[in-house]
Every structure is written in C-alpha cells, then in structure tokens.
C-alpha cells in the first residue's frame, strides 16, 4: 500500500484514460426527473422555451411574442394560438466523493477508484454542457469545489480531483448536510462512498432525498473487504478512528463476516430501493470503464 501513487503524483491519464474518454463522449447523463436548469443547455426543462422540440399550444394574450404565433392554425381556426416549445436547459450533476481514510485503502485503491469514477461521470457531463460539480465530503465549506461546464473545463476538473486527498474523516451525515446546505439546485447527485460509517449512512441519504435530488449511491468496496485474507490471532485496527477488534481468524469467523457484509449490502440496497435511490455496489476489481458503460448504463444513470 505504501507504493500507491500519492494524489499529487497522479497523472490525468490515470484518472481518465483517453480510450475511456472516447467512449464517454458519446454518452450523456440521464436524470429520471426533469429539472429546471439555470442556463440554456441540452436537457429538456420544465420551462417552455426556445428549442426546436414542440411542447404545447396556448391562447394568445396580448404582449406575447408574435414570432411564436402559429400561423397555420390561425389560418385554419382563425384564432391566435401561441406555439410553445420545450426549453432545453443544462443538468446539475453533483458528485460527492467520500475521502475518508477508510476509502484510502485496498488494492486497487478505493479512493483512486472513486476519483476515476467521478472523472468519468464528470466528463460525460462536461461533454453535454451540464453543470458539473465534483466535491469531496467535508464538514465545512472551506474547500469549495468549482462548478464546471463545457469540455474545456476537463483539466480543471481533473486538477481538482487530483487535489483531493484522503483524511477528510467526516461522517457521511455531516458531509451530506454541509453539501445540502450549500447546494440547493435540483439535479443528479452521485454519492461515491464505502458507506462504512459507524453512525450509519441512512440519515445522510435522507438529507439528500430531502433535496429532491435524483440520488445515486455507488458503494465502493475493495476485495480486501469483500474477501478478507486474515490468518491467526489478530488485532484489527481501524484506519479511521484507531479502534480495534481482536479476532482469531477461523473459518467460522470468516463466514460470519461474509454474512455480515452481505447483510450490510442487502440492507443498503433495500434502504435505497424504498426511497427511489439507485444503489450500485462496485468492487474495485471491476474496471471503471466497464462499470460506467455497463452497470451505470443499466441503472439508467448514463445513456
């Protein structure tokens, strides 16, 4: 683990490979809800607007722009109707990264994996002129993440991702709380975390739900967690809080651990399912591009 690249030494290509970029350029982020955007973008908005896509008719009231009157209809019915078009707006895409010490673990590294995932999703958004905001969970608003738009912002996004370092040991709850307070915009929020919070992840997700956001949870787990390779009598030390658990590795104990893990995952899945949150468990062994192009596409996050 000591040989893993530190954040600052990461190359951009390690976060986002050119091959993957090629695939991502053809994709787009999909929201299951239609939100009001702030700027003109490529997403349909609730607002009617000036896109080419027809939306509705309404009666003319004085003061309306004459350019939108449907003259054909006027000729047929001799009444003035105003043609309404769908407004195409930008999508708010938030990506919340859990940068606690527990994420900085595993081979391949969970945090790096999360960053790669965020970079891939963020790049899709950038390509589609969405409002992309990638943020590490933190209790304070001290490090405000940039809001990015357009493909030219890619280096900026990667630069920010690169600057994220493990050690932000905030609970999921306080992290999401702080995020929710600062970002009121509607949109997609993807939480990338291992959900290993001793206080529980449920309240944190409830906060996100309250924002009426389209919430996605990607739980990143390393193979060390899924199938721990422990032998003998050990004192397991928590990298986050230094707490320890003394175990004597035995087949029974390992079975019990596996059971606990699957229960934990099942709980998270059912919790999310009840609240219309899309949950995805990601093993760090699964390559990022496969995860994005297959799993997330199937879950409907990307298209």
């Amino acid at each position: 683990m000591s040989s893993r690249p530190t954040s600052s030494s990461l190359l951009f290509s390690e976060l986002l490979s050119p091959a993957l970029m090629g695939k991502l350029e053809r994709m787009e982020l999909v929201s299951r809800k239609v939100f009001k955007g702030r700027m003109k973008g490529e997403k349909r908005s609730k607002r009617k607007g000036q896109s080419v896509e027809f939306a509705d008719f309404r009666n003319y009231v004085p003061g309306d722009d004459l350019r939108f009157i449907d003259w054909n209809l006027y000729a047929r019915l001799d009444k003035l109707f105003l043609k309404l078009f769908m407004e195409e707006e930008d999508l708010h895409f938030y990506c919340l990264l859990d940068a606690s010490d527990s994420m900085d673990f595993g081979e391949p590294n969970k945090l790096l994996y999360a960053k790669q995932l965020a970079a891939a999703l963020g790049y899709i958004g950038l390509c589609r002129s969405d409002r992309v905001k990638i943020e590490a969970l933190s209790s304070s608003a001290g490090s405000v993440a940039p809001t990015l738009r357009g493909r030219h912002s890619l280096p900026k996004m990667l630069g920010y991702l690169r600057s994220i370092e493990a050690g932000e040991n905030v609970s999921l709850l306080s992290g999401t709380k702080s995020f929710s307070l600062r970002n009121s915009g509607k949109g997609i929020v993807v939480l990338i975390s291992d959900l290993m919070d001793k206080e529980g992840y449920q309240n944190a997700l409830r906060y996100l739900m309250a924002q009426k956001m389209d919430v996605y949870v990607i739980q990143v787990l390393s193979s060390e967690e899924i199938d721990p390779d422990v032998k003998g009598d050990l004192k397991l030390v928590d990298v986050e809080d230094g707490g320890f658990a003394e175990i004597s590795a035995s087949q029974a104990l390992l079975k019990r651990y596996q059971k606990m893990l699957s229960t934990f995952i099942a709980e998270a899945k059912s919790f999310c399912g009840k609240r219309n949150i899309v949950y995805l468990m990601a093993n760090t062994e699964t390559p990022v591009d496969e995860l994005v192009t297959h799993y997330l596409a199937r879950r409907g996050l990307v298209r």
């Binding site: 967690e225 009598d233 050990l234 986050e240 003394e246």
Partner: peptide, 23 residues
C-alpha cells in the same frame, strides 16, 4: 493473554465488530 496478537490494518472494523459481537 494474547501476547502475540499481530496488528492488522483494516479500512473499517465496523463489520468485524458486528461479526465478533456474537462470539
């Protein structure tokens, strides 16, 4: 006395605690 218990870093003892709770 567990004199010879080896330290082993894990990302989280969350699940482990639950696993050994019963034991």
């Amino acid at each position: 006395l567990k004199m010879r218990r080896q330290s082993y870093l894990v990302p989280s003892t969350y699940l482990w605690h639950r696993a050994i709770e019963d034991l």
